[in-house]
């Protein structure tokens, strides 16, 4: 799993070629709304489990929603190390690019 990304990652030239990857952060944020009933402010560093209380099964359900939103597949064995929102966004971006 890649380390936490930075804002600069979004401006990476390769990603500008791919609008889906460019929007990954916003799209993931939108999908997270349902998992954030207490409206905690979310940043890239927000921890899915300890901050948002998303358990292992809910996290996999979220992955299914992301797969459908981006029309990609994200094998769950690729996301076992995902902890933060940014980790998740990084996986989405890499899968979008690989698709």
């Amino acid at each position: 799993m890649a380390a936490c990304g930075t804002e600069a990652d979004f401006l990476d030239a390769k990603e500008i070629m791919s609008p889906n990857a460019l929007n990954a952060y916003d799209e993931v944020l939108a999908l997270l709304t349902r998992y954030n009933p207490n409206n905690i402010e979310i940043s890239g560093e927000t921890n899915l489990n300890s901050d948002l209380n998303i358990d292992s099964v809910s996290a996999m359900d979220l992955i299914m929603e992301i797969e459908d939103r981006f029309e990609i597949d994200i094998p769950i064995n690729l996301v076992s190390d995902v902890q933060s929102v940014q980790d998740l966004v990084d996986v989405v971006k890499s899968r979008v690019e690989a698709a």
């Binding site: 996999m60 992955i63 299914m64 797969e67 597949d73 994200i74 094998p75 769950i76 064995n77 690729l78």
Partner: peptide, 13 residues
């Protein structure tokens, strides 16, 4: 079992 197999694992609804 999926984990032990080393296969890619995709969940469906």
């Amino acid at each position: 079992g999926c984990r032990l197999s080393g296969a890619s694992v995709v969940r469906f609804r």
